[in-house]
């Protein structure tokens, strides 16, 4: 049976992880490759590395990091952050990334999805969506949640699906950082209306939240950052718990 996936997300700035100082007994928790390897050894199913650098120099450092991850870690990984055109995708895939995630740039110019799919295949293209719920419903945001687009979450996710995206990574801005659980209702609506896998993001605080993302939210994968980085939840312990709760995970 296809396993539900657990995906730690690492924010990388100038070649160093941003969070994660409190992680385990790692001597170099600031080194994304070493942190990624530790997660892989604990049983993470995939890794996501997000480049949050703004400078050109930082981008080069990130590409070098991607090469090291590809050489040293034997599970799939996605890279994102600052991808605005096909040349960025090409550069990161050539460095060894398995998938790229696009967010604001795809909202601004949805044809980017078609281009990635045509050149590299659906499996490479993760469309990340940051959305916030208010009285009128769920709306997509740009630039890490600073700019509203007025586009509805479900409508945009459908379009990304139809343009050939391989996966949707949905972050609820209402839930992100609050640690009260994932946006299960919206997740379930995405999961049942799309033909591609959905990754839940934003809101993990306890192990039961992951279970709910899978059982109530019908997500195919769940992504989290701080609960893993600060050692609040261990990946092995989380997967043992999920297996006991009846969720199929890779142990």
């Amino acid at each position: 049976m296809l396993a539900k996936r657990i995906i730690p997300c690492l924010d990388v700035k100038d070649g160093q992880t941003v969070k994660g100082t409190n992680f385990l007994n790692l001597r170099h928790a600031g080194d994304p490759v070493e942190l990624g390897r530790a997660y892989s050894e604990q049983g993470a199913d995939e890794l996501v590395f997000l480049d949050i650098t703004a400078s050109h120099e930082g981008r080069k450092t990130f590409a070098q990091m991607v090469q090291r991850v590809a050489a040293e870690i034997s599970i799939p990984f996605t890279v994102g952050g600052g991808i605005s055109e096909l040349a960025d995708v090409e550069r990161l895939l050539a460095a060894g990334a398995d998938k790229v995630s696009v967010n604001s740039s795809a909202l601004r110019r949805p044809e980017l999805i078609d281009e990635i799919v045509r050149h590299f295949g659906s499996q490479v293209c993760v469309v990340a969506i940051d959305a916030r719920q208010d009285e009128t419903g769920w709306t997509c945001y740009l630039n890490g949640g600073r700019v509203s687009t007025g586009r509805g979450l479900f409508e945009w996710a459908r379009e990304a699906n139809d343009r050939g995206a391989g996966e949707i990574l949905f972050t609820s801005m209402n839930h992100d950082g609050v640690k009260t659980g994932f946006a299960c209702e919206a997740l379930a609506r995405l999961a049942t209306s799309l033909s591609i896998p959905v990754i839940a993001s934003g809101g993990a605080g306890e192990m039961s939240h992951f279970r709910d993302a899978f059982t109530l939210g019908l997500a195919d994968a769940a992504l989290a950052a701080s609960v893993f980085h600060f050692g609040e939840i261990g990946i092995k312990e989380l997967k043992t718990y999920l297996r006991k709760e009846g969720t199929n995970v890779r142990l």
Partner: peptide
């Protein structure tokens, strides 16, 4: 050829 809503294509992830 998916038979149900939970049958996503591509088949992506870890299977046995």
């Amino acid at each position: 050829r998916p038979q149900e809503a939970q049958h996503k294509v591509p088949h992506m992830g870890w299977n046995q």
